[in-house]
């Protein structure tokens, strides 16, 4: 319904919008500027976001703040182990008045969907969700239902060591553009939060900063940010290096993810071209969860691996 061609706004306008957006969220999530910016970049790059951290650091608050600041239709689904695919996609229920089955849309038919504790659901439900994320439509009973645009999934999950979780397989982790960690705030930020207003109250008072139309415009502009040959060299060097040092390395989809995320980051920083620094800024968030398997048993984490990659592959 929003899919219409728009002329790109001028750069400063975009930056202003994005700055205001980031600033508003940062008021709610104190001391987590970098994580917030990454989340916004993920949204602008049309990617889905996975927030992984221990309970109580503000995962849900962040995703709610994102949704409310965008004036988008927002749904929250709490995943549990007995959740079924139909519970999130929707059901066809026989309507006596119409004498036919009528499809009742599930909570997934929304613009911003917050999936809480995504790794608590069974793999069956997880895959139903992830299909929708990738295809941007849902097929039920032979009918294909388009999902609204923009469509943005923010999933949170507890660290996989927590009890009662079904870890997402790497193929499904790959669907998330970024995985970020919030972590506990520093002492000053925590003090500010303790002294400040109730977060729930604050969320209620959030005003939309970016209209859906502007968001789509900005998302279109992201894809237009210039990528030079030198930068693609660097990007491919990174991919090659990951394939040499890791059992599987980064997939071509991961390469696209890196590209789009860095474009979004460049745009957020008011540039019309991508620099190696942009890739480095989003690199750990984009690559970390894609490189976690095979090495996490060895006590290494995908994040450190990605970080090492960025600190060893020379910028050509």
């Amino acid at each position: 319904m929003f899919a219409q061609h728009t002329t790109p706004t001028d750069d400063s306008g975009v930056t202003d919008h994005v700055d205001a957006f980031v600033k508003q969220i940062c008021e709610v999530i104190v001391g987590k500027n970098q994580a917030v910016k990454l989340a916004v970049a993920c949204l602008l790059a049309r990617g889905h976001l996975l927030i992984e951290d221990i309970p109580g650091v503000g995962k849900t608050t962040l995703s709610q703040a994102l949704a409310r600041s965008l004036a988008l239709a927002f749904q929250r689904i709490q995943f549990t182990s007995d959740l079924l695919p139909a519970d999130i996609l929707g059901n066809s229920i026989f309507d006596r008045d119409e004498q036919q089955f009528v499809f009742h849309r599930g909570p997934l038919f929304s613009q911003v969907v917050l999936i809480d504790e995504v790794n608590r659901a069974t793999p069956k439900t997880q895959s139903a969700l992830l299909e929708a994320m990738e295809e941007q439509h849902i097929s039920i009973d032979g009918v294909t239902y388009e999902l609204p645009e923009p469509f943005f999934v923010v999933a949170t999950q507890n660290p996989q060591t927590a009890v009662g979780t079904f870890p997402l397989p790497e193929s499904q982790l790959d669907r998330f553009l970024m995985r970020i960690e919030l972590g506990v705030p520093d002492r000053a930020s925590e003090r500010a939060m303790l002294l400040g207003m109730d977060r729930r109250e604050m969320l209620k008072e959030l005003k939309p900063v970016i209209s859906p139309r502007t968001l789509i415009e900005i998302q279109d502009n992201v894809r237009k940010v210039h990528v030079s040959a030198a930068l693609l060299d660097y990007l491919q060097d990174l991919l090659d290096a990951s394939r040499q040092r890791h059992s599987t390395g980064l997939s071509p989809r991961a390469g696209l993810a890196l590209l789009h995320a860095s474009q979004a980051w460049a745009l957020m920083n008011g540039r019309d071209m991508v620099l190696p620094e942009d890739i480095q800024a989003i690199g750990v968030a984009v690559m970390g969860h894609r490189l976690g398997h095979d090495i996490e048993q060895l006590g290494q984490s995908g994040r450190t691996f990605a970080d090492n990659l960025l600190h060893s592959v020379p910028v050509p």
């Binding site: 620099l275 620094e277 480095q280 600190h311 060893s312 020379p314 910028v315």
Partner: peptide, 9 residues
């Protein structure tokens, strides 16, 4: 400059 350091950084 470290080899992996971007020009702007």
């Amino acid at each position: 400059r470290d080899p992996w350091e971007g020009p702007s950084d």
